[in-house]
Amino acid sequence: MSVSKKDVEYVSELSRLSFSEEEKENLIGDLNSVLGYVEKLNELDTDDVEIIVNPYYIENKFREDEIEPSMELSSLLSNAPDKLEEYVVVPKIIE
C-alpha cells in the first residue's frame, strides 16, 4: 500500500488541514516511510486474537445521575475567539 499525492489530498481534506505543494511532497515521503516501517507487523498472525481496549475488563460502568452545577459560563466564553452576549459567533452557515 503506497501513499500517492491523491491520497494525501484526500486525507488532508478529511483532516481539515491544508498544505502547500512542497508540504504535500514531503508528506508523501513521510507517510510512505512510516507505513513501510509498520509493514513488519504483517509478519504476525493475529487471526485468532481478540481485540482489547483496556488491560482491565471494564464494561458498562454506571453512576448515579446526580445534578451538578455546570461550569461557569463566563470562564468558558472568555476562551471563545468571537462572542456576543452568551453566544459563540461563527460566520453564517446556511445560505
Partner: peptide, 9 residues
C-alpha cells in the same frame, strides 16, 4: 500535522 495525517489515513 504529520501524525494527524498518518492517523486519518
Amino acid at each position: 500535522k504529520r501524525r494527524i495525517m498518518l492517523g486519518t489515513y
